[in-house]
Structure formats: C-alpha cells, structure tokens
Simulated assay, not measured.
Amino acid sequence: MTETTAPALHRGAPAGEPLLHADDLVAGYLPGVNILNGCSLVLHPGELVGIIGPNGAGKSTLLKALFGLVNIREGHLTLAGQEITNMRADALVHKGVGFVPQTNNVFPSLTIEENLQMGVYQTPAKFSERLEVVLHLFPELVKRRKQRAGALSGGERQMVAMARALMPEPSVLLLDEPSAGLSPVRQDEAFLRTRRINKAGVSVIIVEQNARRALQICDRAYVLDQGRNAYSGPGRELMTDPKVIELYLGTLATDVDAARADAEAGAAADAAAQADTSPAAPVDGPEGTTPVDDEAPPASKD
C-alpha cells in the first residue's frame, strides 16, 4: 500500500511516503468507550514528531495504539507501506518499532546490562554489537553496567529504558512523556537525549506534557483535543501560533510550572535530608548505591 501525505492534516510534513502512517484511528480501553475519535499522524524518515494537548486528549492512548497495546477499532496503521493495525507489540519490535513507557519502564531486580540484554531477547546474537552502539549514545551507563536498575533515580531509569528500547535497532521510537516527574535539570537532559537519538538516525514520536520544551526540539507536532487532531505544523511555528497559545499552551504551561515547582521542592527536601545525614556515596559508586532522587510526583495521564 502506498501512502501519501495530506498537507492540510499534516502541515509541514515532507513530501513522499511516510515511514509510519496512522489514518483516522478510533480506539479505546473499554467496549463502546472511545478515547481516540479519528486521530491521524504521519512520521517521515529522520523526523522527530511531538504530540501535545491537554490532559485527557488521548496522547498516551495514541502512542499505545501505535504499539499494539490499545485495540484500534477503526482506521489503519501502516509501517513503510505495510499494514500493522493491531499487530502485537512483540511483532512490532521485530519490525523495528520501539516503545518507552512513562512508568514501570525497567526491570528493577536486574542490572543495567541485564536490562539491555532484555532489549534483544528476540535476537541475542546482536547483543555485543548493539551494546557498543547504545553505550556510545549513553556513556553515563558504561561504568554502571553491573548496578541494579532498582537503585537508580527516575532520570537514570528513564535513560536505561531508552537504551533498552534502542537495543533492537528500531527505525521508529515511541516515547511516552520522558520528562515526567523529573527535576528541571533532568528534564533538559531527557530532551537533549531525545534529540541525540533522533540525530543518530532514529525517527521519533514523543508525547509530552511539557509542550513548550517539546515544540523546541520537534520538527513537527500535532495538538490533540478530545481524541482528534486540533492543529499541526512545525514545532517552533506552533509555539508562536496565537490560537495554539490561547487554547493550549497557556493551560499546559500552568501544568508544567506546577510540576516544576513540585520537582524543585522535592530536590530541596532531598538536599536538606542529606545535610542531616552522613555524606552519600558517589553517583557512580558500586552496586547498591542509593542515588539522589530526582523525581517529582508523576504527571497525570490520558
């Protein structure tokens, strides 16, 4: 099947056949209750595409539908022109689609290296080759390969989850709110890491509540509202669109400011608690080291 890009619906998208095409998707968790109500997007090779919108807009549901975790009731999903609608997640991984959920995204009882091994459980012979590539993208993990993932902070666990998703060498990476619950510094690291992955040749779709920051790094973005496409266009263009600012960015900015304040308060509390106790072991210490927590309460989900 050959797909073409509809300019009005996918404003700013490159010409030609998209790598991933979601067309008029209707999906939901419960029978008769739809979260997505005719949602569409295209992702072209090499693009970084953002999905933003208010709480309950269907952002995370869309990402899960793309990865076979939510049943698509109507519409079609294609990858490189091939139908993949409602294909199982393990089959999608084999076809080159990776997914990083917001929470519960590592195996806490396993080491970092064992988590990365799980990323190529379908093709274990590729482990050594892919490990070298992935550790080049995430040099922070090199000295900590034997540390258990459960001892890591939120930002570090997010890094391991991204690294594991890249182990099978995906052509498409789906990221569900990688900055949620992180301190401001860790949030910036998450966005820079996402851009680095994209520049390494992986096409990325990122769902984000931190709309302004996401629009800064995205080539294009879609604004969802009530499970439908509301606006689309180049990321930086949407940042200055009066309608988008009035209807969406103002509300989203308030949510992000609140989350940032919570994160900063949590970081201050951690610092005060550490001042009252003996000095903590270095972050790059041996297995069992308890890292400084950089998490804030998780953002609300769709």
Rank of each mutant, 00 (worst) to 15 (best):
Q147D: 11
V100R: 00
I205D: 02
L215N: 06
Q147V: 15
R186S: 15
E208W: 01
P184Q: 09
N104A: 13
F191D: 07
K126A: 14
D225R: 14
R157T: 01
K95N: 10
V100T: 04
E129V: 12
H136F: 01
F107M: 04
G181A: 10
F191N: 08
M118R: 03
D219I: 07
S109A: 11
G150D: 08
S171A: 13
R195Q: 15
D188L: 13
M159P: 01
G98Q: 03
A214Q: 06
G155P: 04
F127V: 03
Q187G: 11
F99M: 06
M162H: 03
E208N: 01
S128V: 04
L215V: 06
V97I: 15
S179Q: 03
V160E: 03
A221G: 08
R228G: 09
L135G: 12
A230K: 12
P139S: 08
A211M: 11
V223R: 13
V97R: 00
T111D: 00
V97H: 07
Q209E: 14
M162L: 09
G119C: 06
D188K: 14
P139H: 01
R228S: 14
A211V: 06
E132G: 10
P170L: 00
I112F: 05
K143T: 10
G181Q: 02
I197S: 04
P101G: 06
S171H: 05
P139M: 08
G235Y: 02
V134W: 07
R193V: 11
R193C: 08
S171K: 13
A200K: 02
H94E: 15
D225Y: 05
G201S: 13
